[in-house]
Amino acid sequence: MQDLIDELGHLPGVGPKSAQRIAFHILQSDPVDVRRLVAALTEVIDKVRFCVSCGNVSAEELCRICSDARRDGTVLCVVEESKDVVAIEKTREFRGRYHVLGGAISPIEGVGPDDLRVKELVTRLASGEVTEIILATDPNLEGEATATYLARLLKPMGLRVTRLASGLPVGGDLEYADELTLGRAFEGRRLLDV
């Protein structure tokens, strides 16, 4: 029992108290449910790997998005993590393909450009199919610096390099926005075409 509590305690956001609660919940659950959980965990370990092309999590060699011929191969969206792909897919706004970097440049944490999948990105561009790169790294300092680095690397290749807009969250009040976000919203304002 203690082994289970210790293992659960390693999960993100799970402290010792929560780990104990989950462990006792598992103990009292229907064995069928627990076996299903075990099977799901085993399957994740055995079957899920990373797409050889974009670096996204995938069950096959090529992920669902990279192998889908209906996706627009001329636009590539560069993100930090696989979970960012999930977030963008939910919007149903983007029909191109992705490239997962595996993090952001953060020298203070010892992460430089060589530790990310930048080389793989540049290699992917060799075919000449891609014409636009959308830099969708996080709108924080590391994400901005990574976008700056990539823009400098990719622009000389004659590509259209764009960055996701920053600004006001939908459904919020303008007066509650912080001055930096509001400043960025002004900077990225667009013409209303009515």
């Binding site: 060589d114 930048v118 080389k119 540049v122 060799a126 000449g128 700056t148 680095y149 400098r152």
Partner: peptide, 27 residues
């Protein structure tokens, strides 16, 4: 940049500094 660009990728060296609109950010 420290990344070695593969030989078949069309890159017009020298690499220039990114043209992010710094003036707008400063304003």
């Amino acid at each position: 940049p420290s990344i070695n660009v593969p030989a078949n990728v069309p890159v017009n060296v020298p690499v220039k500094v990114a043209k992010i609109d710094v003036a707008a950010i400063e304003r």
